[in-house]
Nucleic acid binder design. Structure first.
Length: 195
DNA sequence: CGTAAGATTTACT
DNA sequence: GTAAATCTTACGA
């Protein structure tokens, strides 16, 4: 399997993750998704980043070595998943915003229907928190290494898909300015992005 | 110590 | 389209 180099900054890594295959063996089943949408977060230089105001117990994983999985809880209910990038000590990371389930679809479907109602296949992993549900990623997986075979692994795409970029979603203020932070990337003309 | 806000999703009007 | 669910962190008193 061809892996992905995460040692560069999030802005450089993000495009290489689009089209990559993310495999989860968590929860006793195997589910694979093709990443279709990501967002870059640049730590201390990024007003929208959780790490903007320094290191805390929650975001400590982002300061670790590249390949770390940073899982955070949002609004009490939902989990979102990031892959940390850059050299150790820099709080740069890429948020996995959406994907297409390409293997283990029945398992993902069952998990999604347990948490809520999912009526279309494209909704299985279209959205940050939906994706974590489909892959059985929860807060207890915060900090695992994607290169260490601890339940999550990443496979580089064979071909580089056509990309588009734009302002990040759910970010307000200057952090959402598309001119300064055009850090949301997705695959052009793909039905599995959350746009 | 108390309060306010958040990288979201789902259900209801 | 709008509101609620729900918890951790950050910040002010």
């Amino acid at each position: 399997m061809t892996t992905v180099d995460l040692s560069a900054h999030a802005l450089e890594v993000a495009p290489t993750l689009l089209g990559a295959i993310l495999t989860s063996t968590l929860g006793g089943a195997r589910v694979r998704v093709r990443v279709t949408e990501v967002e870059a977060y640049e730590g201390a230089h990024d007003p929208a980043s959780h790490a903007y105001r320094g290191r805390t117990a929650r975001n400590a994983v982002m300061f670790g070595p590249p390949g770390g999985v940073y899982v955070y809880r949002h609004m009490g209910l939902h989990y979102c998943m990031n892959l940390t990038c850059g050299p150790e000590g820099t709080a740069t990371a890429v948020l996995i915003r959406a994907g297409e389930v390409v293997d283990g679809e029945e398992v993902a479907w069952r998990r999604r229907n347990g948490a809520g109602v999912c009526r279309a296949p494209r909704d299985l992993a279209r959205g940050p928190a939906r994706l974590t549900v489909a892959l059985a990623v929860t807060g207890q997986h915060n900090g695992i290494d994607i290169f260490a075979g601890e339940g999550l692994s990443l496979e580089a795409p064979r071909v580089r898909p056509p990309l588009r970029s734009g302002p990040r979603i759910g970010v307000r203020g200057i952090g959402a300015d598309p001119d300064r932070f055009p850090w949301r990337l997705w695959i052009d003309e793909d039905d599995f992005v959350s746009g």
